[in-house]
Design a protein around this nucleic acid. Structure first.
Length: 586
RNA sequence: GUCCCCGUAGCUCAGUCGGAUAGAGCGUCGGAUUCCUAAUCCGAAGGCCAGAGGUUCGAAUCCUCUCGGGGACGCCA
């Protein structure tokens, strides 16, 4: 329970009292009533909108109602004053002894500060990355990977039982192309001059080692086979090799999935798994044979009007019904995806999250429709879209083209700038807004680089402890017992600003989890680091504000409790983002 | 043509289940360091929150429309 919860409870009880007195009607909707930190510190330490929310149902003037509530809030011992302001806000000013309680709370909670059980231990499946196994990951994949991973960490921190999952698209035509491309490299490894890689095959030289390994395993045996014979062999080997590559790439970003689910398995035994899902949908009346109107806009060249097997997606909020079978009788990607989401549902994941790229925006409605249909409305799917990343180098956009072989791989970026900056920068933007990734800025070691700014904040807290050991002979900061700090001397405005910020952390975490927006944590950390740096710098001109006061151990002890609390919170937030919290930066 | 996302300071963006005088960084200008890491800090200037209606005690936030940018639009994955 955080600071705000405590006061919301107070307010709630006061409203109960007013209901009993007949001032507020019993059925008044209290949902909008909140206690928050006013933006302007001149408005006090805490404020509530209770009177404005309840004025109308109570048929009262907001300010008059506010006066009544304020009177009762003023009786709480920790409240120094409760005043009505503006249209009916109630502003609370707390006793100065209040804020240090936050420091104590942070230190007592340790790594658990901000942790909650909002999820109640509910199982939750988050599918992310799911890049096609046709080559190494490029920067475009990086954002979804980092976002999904940070979201998973965040949801775990807030009490969900999270399963991280990767859907391997190993069933379509793309992996056949991969196999043919690999076969070419196999022939090359056997000494053949393959010349230019033909149009339509993957030209990247990441397939060269695979060709060599195929030649070592199979010798020239594959050469005498028909494509129908060698293709499955080469395809399996190629997919395994590409997935190994992708796992390595992900590991470089500190990302590890719990489950890798193969699309191909859904197509095995003549598509038994997919067929079964379609059958169950059919018996529920969600499948029919019919024709679709041609798509608007530019008509595909091979458009033919034909009767086909359709899913009544429109019954579940989609714009059109969706095809489940291709004209050659095989299942569509969507059909397999329904079976996949059904599989996840059957594994106990009523709540699922899919992290998809920007180009899949048009896919959301049908996926949601599908999960609703196969779960009888019991399943819940959230789809988070990650927008494009624009790479900038020396102020100019880096154009990427697969055909020209100029795409920047995830590995390149991580090796050039490091994991921490990559992860942090990817999380400095709301996921559904496009993001500029500027190499120069990200590698810069200055305050212009948010990740260094925040990490340096953490390093600074650690540095102060080291400094303390040097200042006070025999001091071992590891044994500094914050529990014995009196916490009565943290009265400077800079210190109070930091404590106010610390108090917000649990709410920031809860809000970020509810909105599934880890970027809020990145912004919070930036602000907390800023408060720390700002306060620290004041000690430059005002020596009495320095953390270490060699002739006043009591004060020093209090200040170190605060510094420890800041370091603790910075580390907690960075950990959720999957970014390291260095103890020293030089 | 339909659907989705976006439009906030010169630039890059926060803020959006409605709250008080709309914030931060960069850039510009002016300052701070004999002393806890200057990888830092302080100050100033900078706004018709794309536009128009509507709902409300109250709108950047919700609704409708318009304009502008991006994306998607049977069998690709």
């Amino acid at each position: 329970m955080d600071l705000f919860d405590i006061f919301e409870e107070h307010v709630d009880q006061i409203i109960d009292g007013l209901v009993a007195e007949g001032v507020v009607p019993e059925d008044a909707n209290r949902r909008g009533v909140i206690v928050e930190l006013p933006r302007d510190t001149g408005h006090g330490d805490l404020s509530t909108n209770a009177a404005m929310v309840l004025a109308k149902p109570s048929k009262m003037n907001p300010r008059a109602l506010a006066e009544q509530i304020a009177g009762k809030l003023g009786e709480i011992d920790i409240v120094a004053s409760a005043e009505v302001a503006g249209p009916g806000f109630i502003n609370l000013r707390l006793e100065t002894s209040f804020w240090p309680r936050i420091v104590k709370a942070v230190l007592e909670a340790g790594d658990d500060y901000g942790k909650s059980n909002i999820g109640g231990g509910a199982k939750l499946n988050i599918e992310y990355v799911s890049a096609n196994p046709t080559g190494p990951m490029h920067v475009g994949h990086t954002r979804g990977a980092v976002f999904g991973d940070a979201l998973a960490r965040l949801l775990e921190f807030t009490g969900y039982d999270v399963c991280r999952e990767y859907y391997i698209n190993d069933a379509g035509a793309q992996v056949d192309v991969l196999a043919r491309s690999a076969f070419l490299r196999y022939r090359e490894a056997l000494g053949e001059d393959i010349g230019e890689i033909p149009e339509g095959l993957y030209p990247g030289d990441y397939l060269v080692p695979l060709g060599v390994s195929l030649s070592e395993t199979h010798g020239e045996a594959l050469l005498s086979m028909d494509e129908a014979e060698w293709l499955p062999i080469v395809k399996d080997a190629a997919i395994d090799a590409m997935m190994a590559l992708i796992r390595e790439d992900l590991a470089k970003l500190n990302i590890h999935h719990d489950v890798f689910f193969s699309e191909k398995t859904l197509h095995e035994n003549n598509g038994a798994a997919i067929g079964a899902v379609i059958e169950s949908l059919r018996s529920a009346g969600h499948i029919y044979r019919g024709r679709l109107d041609p798509p608007k806009g530019t008509l595909p060249e091979d458009w033919e009007d034909r009767e086909q097997t359709l899913f009544r997606a429109t019954d579940f909020g989609d714009d059109v019904d969706r095809a489940l079978e291709k004209s050659d009788g095989s299942y569509t990607y969507f059909a397999a995806d329904i079976a996949y989401h059904k599989d996840k549902f059957d594994r106990g994941f009523a709540h699922q999250i899919d992290v998809l790229g920007a180009d899949h925006g048009g896919y959301i409605k049908r996926l949601k429709a599908a999960l609703k249909a196969i779960s009888d409305g019991k399943g819940e799917l959230d789809v988070r879209i990650c927008q494009l990343v624009k790479l900038l180098r020396d102020g100019a956009e880096v154009k990427m083209s697969k055909r020209a072989g100029t795409f920047v791989t995830l590995r390149d970026v991580v090796e050039e700038v490091g994991v921490d900056p990559v992860r942090f920068m990817m999380l400095m933007r709301k996921n559904d807004a496009t993001l500029d990734f500027d190499f120069a800025r990200v590698t810069e070691q200055s305050k212009d680089n948010p990740v260094f700014y925040v990490q340096y904040g953490h390093a600074r807290t650690c540095s102060l402890f080291r400094q303390l050991e040097e200042s006070i002979p025999g001091m071992d900061s590891a044994n500094l017992d914050h529990a014995t700090a009196p916490l009565t001397r943290l009265t400077d405005e800079g210190e109070i600003a930091i404590m106010r910020k610390l108090a917000q952390y649990p709410r920031v975490i809860a809000g970020a989890a509810a909105a599934q927006e880890p970027h809020r944590i990145a912004f919070y950390l930036y602000e907390l680091a800023s408060d720390l740096h700002s306060h620290w710098a004041r000690g430059k001109v005002a020596p009495h504000l320095r953390i270490i006061q060699e002739d006043d151990w009591e004060l020093t002890q209090d200040r170190f409790a605060l510094i420890a609390a800041v370091g603790n919170t910075l580390k907690s937030g960075l950990t959720i983002l999957g970014v390291s919290a260095p103890r020293e930066m030089r």
